[in-house]
Design a protein around this nucleic acid. Structure first.
Length: 552
RNA sequence: UGGGGUGUCGCCAAGUGGCAAGGCACCGGGUUUUGAUCCCGGCAUUCGCAGGUUCGAAUCCUGCCACCCCAGCCA
């Protein structure tokens, strides 16, 4: 699958910067906070940032924006690195950390104080909120706004030394409490947090805010195009203000694009975390999760995710992408590349009465219907088989293209058969179908000219294997589960997972390697579970069903 | 009733004054040993609305409307 360089407004803008000589080499960065697993929305940002750097022969850094130690952890750092690599991207040099710049950031904070552009404020959170004003009313100056440079320097140093309690003091930029842009009403630059940091340990008790860190980090790394989502647009004046007031080594520019919204999906770290914490799913990498790790386990491929990101485009409008596009991307990849196999999910015994009990016939079937280079596989044909219970009816109308009593059907890659009897149990349930094979119909139509109505999959009871197959459906049955605060928990799909413990699979499928994807013909695309699949106890996850235009 | 954004087919999205790309979805028809794939065809006289400028407007101007974001010591 080809992923062409996205032709979006950022691409054009960078091309223009290069053409006009405003930048020599493009440097972007993907800056996740390690406080959760990456999700499909991050994939869009990753494809954008790494893709843009790639397109222009530049580089893209991976930088952990770890300025809030309370919510972050090493586990998330590892998962993020793994996910980015899995998607097929390589960051420039080592991964960076905002925390490795804490020393420089602190120096710059002192610099701002010396310039008279920042001050230590003793208002508590509640008071600060009152002083900030509202959207329609200007704020009021903090009573601590006019402290001397010497006093501010002293107080800031003592904040750093741990002399003050959490929440008792903050460092703020001195900008404009009457600004219509709330971000300019003397924003907080540093706050006291007496918690150990996963990278710096006990070294710091004050931590820079996102606003004080981000632009400066970009400058330190030589980032030329700092790409973020729309909600940061109001922060850009502050981003620029800080860079203008500090002796930074670079002049990055911030650009914003619309974040990804997907229907039937929740993409907020907070909500995903709740699904994990409330054990609604089995973890961040549960195949129902829209996390990169979850999609991976579900059977999505890196190529399909990149293709999807390419398909949805990058703009400044905020829309909701139909999850059908994501489904199309993975079907498209797997249809082209996944080997075929046969699996019977809801087994019904089929006895071929004109086939001897000890009959063993090796049949050859292509691994892929249109890609000969993928070779063939062997199937063993025997007297007793299983077919799907849904593929047999005692009687049916013309629309039904499967096996009907007294009628013919083709067994995929094998013979045409004709059903002549059914066996039922005491309750009237069909427990066995008896049929005859029509001789000489492997690869041939029946000599009498009576063609079968359809084609169904089968597995030999003698050589087939049993498998656990997990059938996944969307996690939410509401188009916009994200609406409202916690409403999303009310829209959980009770049928998001159905486990079939004793499905039958053709023998070769048991030998699949974990994470290998297949098309189980007439059923859908499945992947050998990354962690649990073994040849002895095969486990497959359904990635996505086949498109079904039967109208039924 | 402050500020910042966005409005082109059901959804995503090209288009930047010259006569509305493409993808997804959907609907027809063909091929088919997967009701899959593939192929062919259909799918916006109209670009949030109303005025204006122009030979000509989705593109320029004016006004209006709708929706999103901002009042964390989160990012």
């Amino acid at each position: 699958m080809e992923t062409r360089p996205g032709n979006n407004f950022l691409y054009s803008l960078i091309a223009d910067d290069l053409a006009k000589g405003r930048v020599q080499q493009v440097v972007t960065r993907f800056p996740p906070e390690p406080n959760g697993y990456l999700h499909v929305g991050h994939a869009k940002s990753i494809c954008l940032n790494f893709g843009l750097a790639e397109s222009f022969g530049g580089r893209c850094n991976l930088r952990f924006d770890d300025t809030n130690p309370e919510k972050e952890s090493q586990e998330f750092i590892e998962s993020i690195k793994e996910d980015v690599r899995w998607l097929g991207y390589q960051w420039a040099g080592e991964a960076r950390f905002a925390s490795s710049y804490f020393g420089q950031l602190y120096e710059w904070a002192c610099e701002l104080v010396r310039e008279g552009a920042a001050y230590v404020c003793d208002l508590d959170a509640q008071q600060a909120r009152e002083y900030r004003g509202t959207l329609t009313e200007p704020g009021r100056n903090s009573p601590f706004r006019d402290r001397s440079v010497a006093e501010n320097l002293d107080l800031l140093a003592r904040m750093k030394d741990g002399e003050f309690d959490e929440g008792s003091r903050v460092l703020r930029a001195k900008i404009d409490m009457a600004s219509p842009n709330m971000n300019l009403r003397d924003p907080i630059l540093y706050r006291i947090r007496k918690v150990p940091h996963h990278q710096t340990g006990e070294e710091w008790v004050i931590y820079p805010t996102y606003d004080f860190a981000h632009g400066q980090e970009d400058a330190i790394e030589g980032v030329t195009h700092s790409i973020c989502t729309l909600e940061f647009e109001d922060h850009r004046p502050l981003y620029d203000w800080l860079l203008a007031h500090l002796p930074v080594p670079g002049r990055p520019r911030q650009y914003e694009f619309g974040r990804l919204n997907l229907n039937y999906t929740v993409t907020s770290k907070r909500k995903l975390r709740q699904l994990v914490d409330d054990a609604v799913v089995e973890g961040w990498d549960d195949p129902r999760m829209p996390t990169i790790a979850g999609m991976r386990r579900r059977g999505f491929t890196p190529a399909s995710i990149r293709c999807f990101c390419d398909m949805i485009g990058v703009t400044r409008s905020d829309g909701v992408v139909d999850v059908a596009m994501l489904e199309h991307a993975i079907r498209d990849d797997l249809n082209e590349n996944a080997p075929r196999g046969m699996c019977v999910l809801n087994p019904l015994r089929l006895v071929l009465t004109n086939v001897p009990a000890d009959h063993r016939e090796q049949l050859v079937a292509p691994r892929h219907p249109s890609r000969e280079e993928l070779g063939n596989r062997e199937l063993t044909f025997t007297r007793e088989l299983v077919i799907d219970a849904d593929d047999f009816r005692e009687e049916a109308n013309k629309k039904y293209k499967r096996l009907v009593l007294g009628k013919r059907v083709r067994l995929r890659n094998a013979y045409v058969i004709e059903a002549h009897d059914v066996v039922k149990d005491a309750t009237g349930k069909i427990i066995e179908v008896q049929a005859r094979i029509i001789p000489d119909t492997v690869g041939e139509d029946p000599a009498d000219g009576i063609k079968p109505k359809g084609v169904i999959q089968w597995v030999s009871v003698a050589t087939g294997k049993r498998a656990t197959v997990r059938l996944y459906n969307r996690l939410f049955n509401h188009e916009a589960p994200d609406r409202g605060d916690n409403a999303f928990m009310d829209f959980l799909n009770p049928e998001s997972l159905q486990v079939v413990e004793d499905a039958w699979i053709e023998a070769a499928l048991a030998e699949a390697v974990p994470e290998q994807g297949f098309q189980f013909e007439r059923e859908g695309y499945f992947v050998a579970d990354r962690y649990q699949h073994t040849p002895e106890r095969p486990v497959f996850n359904r990635t996505i069903g086949l498109r079904d235009t039967s109208g039924a």
